[in-house]
Amino acid sequence: MITNVSTSATSNQTVSQSTSSQSGVLNSDFETFLKMLTTQAQNQDPLNPLDSTEYASQLASFSSVEQQVMTNDLLTALNAQFQSSGLGQLVDWVDSEVLQSGSAYFDGRPIALQVPSQPNADSATLVISDANGNEVAHRQLSLGDSFYEWDGLGNNSETQSSAFYTFRIDAYASGELINSGQATTYQRVTEARSGSDGEIVLTLLGGAEVNASGVDGIRVTD
């Protein structure tokens, strides 16, 4: 799912304001503490000096909180820069699955395909071919199903090697081929970047690249 960037920006602004407020309060309290410590040290009874252990402990606590607030300030600034550069939007694409036409990479996990409606057909066959155009598997499809998962098994019932494969759907009516077309598949996005023309370029599993505007759908899987 693509995150709304404006929502992230609003969240960053809120966090920044909260952190700035914390920093201001901390600085005020720390200065007050130092003044009190200095005053007590100047007016202590030489014969009964104040216990310095407690003050050392409080100084250490103030120092720890101060470092944490400074770290939060830095992280907030970096996050704001990250979002304003557009990188936040690119991150939302990574690990999602996009629906695209063309070959798909099999890495041992099932490949999900979208099966188009064939209103005039009484049967349909999925033909799977390797990069050289050689058929490695064919499956009979149910016309009522809109999705199909190829498990990677070939006609010989052996798992095919990791590679690119194409998926063609042939529709028949009374034994006659009436339609043939390439199926669309879901492929995982491994990288997203901005192209020279401002278009978002997605790198898919296996290294193939597509423009974000050219995908037909997107989904997020567990």
Rank of each mutant, 00 (worst) to 15 (best):
D29A: 13
R168Q: 14
W93Y: 11
V15S: 03
V127P: 03
L37P: 00
Q17H: 02
A131M: 00
I200E: 08
L87R: 06
S174Q: 09
F164K: 00
L177V: 08
V210S: 06
V5D: 00
G86P: 04
L177M: 04
Q114Y: 02
A77G: 03
T185W: 02
F147K: 09
L87V: 06
N27G: 08
N155V: 05
A173I: 00
R188C: 02
V189L: 06
V220I: 13
K35N: 15
T10K: 10
L153C: 06
F147L: 08
L126A: 11
Q114A: 14
V5P: 00
S161T: 14
S117T: 03
S84F: 05
A183G: 09
A60S: 09
E54L: 05
A208E: 14
N155S: 01
N134S: 14
N12L: 03
P119D: 10
S162Q: 15
N27H: 07
Q58R: 12
S85C: 03
V65L: 10
F147R: 15
L143Q: 01
Y172C: 07
S6T: 10
N72G: 01
Y55G: 07
S101W: 10
T7N: 05
V220R: 14
F106M: 09
T39V: 14
S11M: 14
S8K: 06
T76E: 14
P119H: 10
T159N: 07
A60D: 14
A56W: 00
N79T: 13
D45P: 02
T32Y: 07
Y186D: 04
S57T: 10
T221Q: 05
S61L: 10
D92Y: 13
S61M: 08
E135H: 03
I169F: 12
I111C: 10
N12C: 02
Q67W: 05
A137D: 00
G86K: 06
Y55F: 13
V25L: 09
A173V: 03
D122Q: 06
E97P: 06
A77F: 00
T159Y: 14
F167S: 02
D222A: 09
D51G: 06
Y172G: 04
G88D: 12
S23D: 11
E54V: 15
G24K: 13
G214D: 15
